[in-house]
Design a protein around this nucleic acid. Structure first.
Lengths: 150, 150
DNA sequence: TGTTTTTCGTTGTATTTGCAACAAAAATGC
DNA sequence: GCATTTTTGTTGCAAATACAACGAAAAACA
């Protein structure tokens, strides 16, 4: 059995760790960059969807986003037609930070792909997307309380 | 720019989340399974190396391993020739759990690889290993306080 | 040899993370 | 229309996570 997931876990933890250290200079604490980037790229998104995108617990996303709001990186806006939801938008302060976050991510991508040909990188991306789609089905099931049989 | 790392992040968080939920029935709390599996597969390893393998902070590993010891899943043993290190070994209780942890991991691997041919799976594993090796260089640098320039 | 640096482990503290449980609005079903 | 289920958001609490800082052993070096 090839341990695909161990490799993925190592890569994910290493890069998350690096990002957290690097973004401290912008006063972003652990994990916040993930949420801010998603909100900048999807203005008007609600936090439930951010949690789904990131595959984190709803309550974790709720608190991370609340903190971004308190710090003035994003705002929550009511919706005219739906009293339940709160749409999320970056503020000027948040938008200004975005290019730095993007650049860091791009750099990490580049480092990660060092030594891979263009075709290999394309292949990897395709394979990872397929794996991700497989995995998110189980994630949603298990998160809703269903049990996997194996 | 293909967002390889976002896919990897999603996959890693989703599967970690699933494992944490599934291992609760063995009284393992968040993350503990990672350490126990590594110690079972590398008896005599020291915690510094476990942290390196997993790409987690040394102090995080220290506390997770201490808890495994208190719960009786592993033991720490002194080394005859080196007073500083403590070698880690699974106990009977820990060894008994291992097959269940392994089976869960294998199942997740299988789910993840659904729809991929044997060749694609092999290709993915190879590419991921290369990415991981690229990334761990930066991780070790940044963890030691060095700054990445980009 | 003696000095300096690196490795390894620990604890204090602040913060994130996530499960449980709740509430209210919206969507669905009949 | 009305009852039921799903969606969305929140808070209480327990626990993991990681930075800083320390100490001691080992390794490197001069």
């Amino acid at each position: 059995m090839r341990e695909i997931l161990r490799e993925i876990g190592m890569i994910a933890r290493a890069l998350d760790s690096i990002s957290n250290i690097e973004f401290k200079e912008f006063n972003l604490t652990k994990g916040q960059y993930l949420y801010l980037i998603r909100i900048c790229e999807n203005p008007g998104i609600i936090q439930e969807k951010v949690a789904e995108m990131l595959k984190v617990d709803r309550t974790t996303a709720a608190r991370a986003i609340k903190k971004l709001e308190i710090q003035g990186f994003i705002v929550k806006k009511e919706d005219d037609h739906n009293k339940k939801i709160k749409k999320l938008y970056p503020t000027e302060k948040g938008r200004k930070l975005y290019p730095f976050l993007k650049r860091e991510g791009d750099h990490s991508n580049q480092i990660a792909l060092t030594g891979l040909s263009e075709e290999e990188a394309a292949m990897l991306f395709d394979l990872l997307q397929r794996v991700r789609k497989n995995v998110e089905i189980d994630w949603e099931l298990v998160k809703k309380g269903n049990k996997r049989e194996y």
